[in-house]
Amino acid sequence: MSNLSEIFKNHKAFIPFVVADDPDFDTTVANIIALAEGGADIVEIGIPFSDPIADGGVIQAADLRAFDAGVRTKTVFEIVEAARKQTNVPIVFLTYLNIVFKYGYDAFCQKCQELGVSGLVIPDMPYESREDIVPTADKYDIDIIPLIAPTSGHRVEKIAKAASGFIYVVSSLGITGERNEFFNGLKDLVAEIKSYTDVPTAIGFGVHTPKQAKAMAGIADGVIIGSAIVDIVAKQKQNAPQAIEKYTQSIRAAVDEAQTEEAHV
């Protein structure tokens, strides 16, 4: 088990996401630093996959830009290594199971530990398949971050009870990408998770404005933002770091407001 869950102690966490090597190596390193300096609590780095079935158009396009840059799994490790020279921000990877499987579960988790990567989010690995990797991940103190969806129903209990690090609560059905509406039962879903575990929760999928971030941080222990940041990279390219830092500050402030308001309740 990593120290990820400590981050959420009396603190609403902001977890932004970028795709590795989008649009290139140096920009990704700079983006990670910008996220850390802008106030991210955990930086989630996407390792591109050829067929990202849980991701919408924005992240699919980012994966393609990374492939154009020649991204390999080892490139992603090199990016983290370079970023680690400037920041100790907690990092988790998001990728599809085949990437980890082909690298070798043991070699991959060992590499994560070496680089100070605390957890893995694997959207195509449900509870039923977690035993493939969890024993190996445990060996290297890597958390496998489970996802819980609005459709999880009776599955919430077993997933929550087995969780470590934090729980990724999927805000709505479907795939990643900016949204203006979320599943209206999120509050109850988080409350149910809380009844089974102390492992913190973070809501992701579709969150993009400071107002939404504040609302989601009010419901859960943290908020995850992906596509909105990746969209900044798409538009600003090599100039993304400045814009990302500014955006991160705006979300940081919104999430902190949720923390303050909760403290006053």
Partner: peptide, 20 residues
């Protein structure tokens, strides 16, 4: 585990949203 062939192939590797 259900649906495993030759102790190796098959299984369920799909987003949580679809598992129920």
């Amino acid at each position: 585990r259900p649906g495993i062939f030759a102790d190796t192939y098959g299984g369920q590797y799909i987003p949580e949203t679809l598992m129920t």
